[in-house]
Design a binder for these strands. Structure first.
Length: 704
DNA sequence: GCCCGATCATGATT
DNA sequence: CAATCATGATCGGG
């Protein structure tokens, strides 16, 4: 957000303990959005800190989409989109710099959805050894991600080849055991039903909004993560099955997509600053249609004939594009350079290159998506929607190997929220080239975490939150005694997916709960992590919540809600954020304590849990944590009725003793500097109510 | 309408 | 770690 980037150059004052001590805890209240409606998402000067959720009431049984996102219509006038023509691109004429309105002609037509055949196969419940009693119902089946089907018949005569035949697979296959095949079709169907994405009408497919785009992306990611988990459990780590492609393919063939109509200008529902981790995500929400090509364009009808105009580009750095200062982008045309046989050719003025050339003269706005390296995972890439640009000029030049390439100079349209520039600033803070403005303490953890967490206030004079002791983990006065202890594992090198001998994987229903990137692969009622009696090292994948936060976080003063938590690093959907540290106290035994996590409250369920689990998420242990006197960064996470963070119960046990923990994971991709919030849940004790002014459309009006 | 090829992918391996 | 490989999907154009 922009306030984070102001540079007025004063040095951070040293901390004054006497003032700090008297400050009241303030993790409450006050609106975040000045105006709940009528603001165009395009012209809003800064990105909304929260994505919002429609007002479904506290917990409606089986009605509205359970995890929706607020939909400020792109036009800001919700009723109007239905009045547009079915081909539906609003012609605003003016903004494109044309004398006449453009009437765009989409080059593609709708793909007919193919009907999915339900695969047959003998159904079997996954191994499920949860050690609290009444979880062996449908509930747990859903929470662990649907049932598992075993194909005993090899491909049943369809003749369909899958995977690569080359490398021999390890584990089961190598030993000649029956490979476990999971039919993912019903899994997807269930997700689509839960999120009301079955039979999207043509209008919604053609033109989206924020709420719909959010749902599509959420389902894609949930599905993709689950398929990653299934693939790995069958083939072991490193199975190159491209779950991203498979997931998006299945969604697209079912017509689960939006903004399929190409348009010049912003894609409805996609905000400047939004981030993506797969090219396919750009396709699904119509931000950029081609799966690989960097230039998207459409045929536009002008006075007499049609001509192609560029609508969006992806700058991935593959052609040594010059990043410039953040408002300028030098973009290289497509084609020419890479050939299989090593031969190189001149680029031709056709396709995307031609469209960009035309767009120079028409001066239309072009969406720009900037690809950057994912620092947390160098082989991955992150795509940042950086808003609208206009092409100032174009030219041809010789590249290093002497071929002609086209170059285009793009200038960012002023008045848009900062996006890529935020990333640049953060990089400068990290490199020490520039200093973060308003830093009160460089590291409020005093080195207790692997990364510093700075305390920042750039909005007023307050010198810090009330004094507390920083403790990085949870304090138990007495561990819980397990009635049915689970065995510990013997994975010396760390638990590996697909290892059917690993006791901890068995406890988790046969799946490793986390990906190699620290992403939670499917939500569960309870996750069994490795404990002190396990043989695996501390960096084992099944100890995700034990290693402290991975992202670079900061505690900052919000405008109206006291102190809050946010991240300098982008966080992928499902990514681990931190544990709720503090002191375990007796349930119900708190009154004047604003730093409580109470697992016995009623919480909005996530994904497919909704329909049958209306009451509450089941908690096998009445865990209540107070972080009033001591805690970690999560004590600063504010409440929101439409949060971007979700908690997940985790148990670590060794022998017959266990400790339960609360681990926080990102619900969706979270761009840098967006405040992290979770839902505090509902309490039966009315007197604990506080007024909530989080401003989201589905705000319940209060929280606890 | 069908097929084919171009395309700033992804992930793992060498 | 940069280069390479294998697998891949969409869309425009022939």
């Amino acid at each position: 957000m922009e306030q984070g980037l102001r540079s007025d150059g004063n040095n951070p004052p040293s901390i004054d303990k006497t003032r700090v001590l008297d400050v009241k805890p303030l993790r409450c209240l006050a609106p975040v959005f000045p105006s709940p409606n009528g603001m165009s998402s395009v012209s809003t000067p800064q990105p909304s800190p929260f994505v919002c959720v429609p007002p479904t009431g506290p917990f409606p049984p089986g009605v509205a989409p359970f995890y929706p996102f607020v939909a400020p219509n792109d036009s800001g006038r919700p009723g109007e989109s239905s009045q547009q023509t079915p081909s539906g691109v609003p012609n605003q004429g003016g903004p494109f710099g044309f004398a006449q309105p453009i009437s765009p002609v989409p080059l593609n037509s709708f793909r007919t959805p193919t009907t999915a055949n339900g695969n047959s196969g003998r159904s079997r419940r996954a191994v499920d050894d949860d050690d609290y009693s009444n979880s062996q119902d449908q509930n747990d089946q859903f929470a662990s991600g649907f049932s598992v089907h075993v194909n005993n018949v090899e491909d049943s005569g369809t003749g369909k080849k899958r995977g690569r035949p080359k490398k021999p697979r390890r584990a089961q296959q190598a030993e000649g055991l029956t490979p476990v095949e999971v039919d993912v079709e019903p899994l997807l169907t269930l997700l689509l039903t839960s999120f009301k994405l079955v039979d999207l009408d043509q209008v919604k497919k053609a033109d989206g909004d924020k709420e719909l785009a959010g749902r599509v992306l959420l389902v894609f990611d949930l599905f993709r993560r689950r398929m990653t988990q299934i693939d790995e459990s069958r083939d072991g780590p490193g199975s190159g099955r491209r779950p991203d492609l498979k997931a998006s393919n299945m969604l697209m063939t079912k017509g689960v997509r939006t903004n399929q109509t190409k348009r010049i200008g912003n894609a409805p529902g996609i905000e400047v600053g939004d981030i993506f981790f797969f090219r396919m995500e750009l396709c699904l929400v119509g931000l950029h249609a081609p799966t690989m090509a960097g230039i998207d364009y459409m045929s536009v009808k002008l006075t007499m004939d049609e001509e192609p105009l560029a609508v969006s580009i992806v700058s991935s750095g593959g052609y040594d594009d010059d990043g410039g200062d953040g408002d300028v982008l030098i973009y290289t045309g497509q084609g020419g350079v890479q050939r299989k046989d090593g031969q190189v050719f001149d680029q031709k003025l056709e396709r995307g290159n031609l469209a960009l050339e035309k767009s120079v003269h028409r001066a239309n706005e072009v969406r720009v998506i900037r690809g950057v390296k994912d620092v947390a995972y160098p082989t991955g890439k992150i795509y940042i929607y950086d808003g609208l640009y206009k092409i100032q000029e174009s030219w041809a030049e010789k590249n290093k190997v002497g071929c002609n390439v086209f170059k285009y100079k793009l200038l960012r349209v002023p008045g848009q929220p900062e996006a890529f520039k935020v990333w640049k600033s953060i990089q400068q803070w990290k490199d020490g080239v520039a200093s973060r403005v308003g830093v009160i303490l460089p590291d409020l953890t005093s080195g207790a975490e692997s990364q510093p967490v700075c305390l920042v206030n750039d909005v007023d004079d307050e010198k810090g939150p009330a004094y507390f002791t920083y403790i990085p983990s949870l304090k138990y006065s007495k561990p819980f005694v397990m009635p049915r202890p689970s065995p510990s594992c013997h994975c010396v090198g760390g638990c590996q997916p697909g290892d059917s001998n690993c006791a901890c994987i068995q406890s988790n229903g046969g799946f490793l709960p986390y990906s190699s990137l620290g992403v939670l692969l499917s939500y569960k009622t309870l996750i069994h992590e490795c404990g002190s009696a396990c043989s695996c090292p501390p960096n084992c994948r099944n100890r995700m919540s034990q290693g402290g936060p991975k992202a670079r976080l900061e505690v900052f003063k919000t405008k109206n809600r006291g102190w809050g938590l946010r991240s300098w690093d982008p966080i992928r959907g499902g990514g681990f954020i931190c544990e709720y540290a503090g002191e375990v106290i007796d349930a119900g035994n708190y009154s004047d304590d604003n730093y409580i996590f109470d697992a016995t409250r009623i919480y909005a369920p996530l994904e497919a849990e909704r329909d049958y689990n209306d009451e509450s998420r089941k908690v096998p242990f009445p865990l209540v944590i107070s972080a009033k006197n001591g805690g970690n960064i999560s004590r600063f996470m504010n409440h929101s009725c439409s949060p971007n963070v979700y908690w997940q119960l985790v148990v670590r046990q060794s022998n017959n003793e266990a400790t339960y923990h609360i681990a926080f994971f990102a619900i969706r991709h979270i761009p840098p500097m967006q405040e992290l919030t979770f839902d505090y849940g509902m309490d039966k004790a009315d007197h604990r109510r506080k007024k909530c002014l989080c401003g989201s459309l589905n705000c319940r009006g209060y929280f606890y």
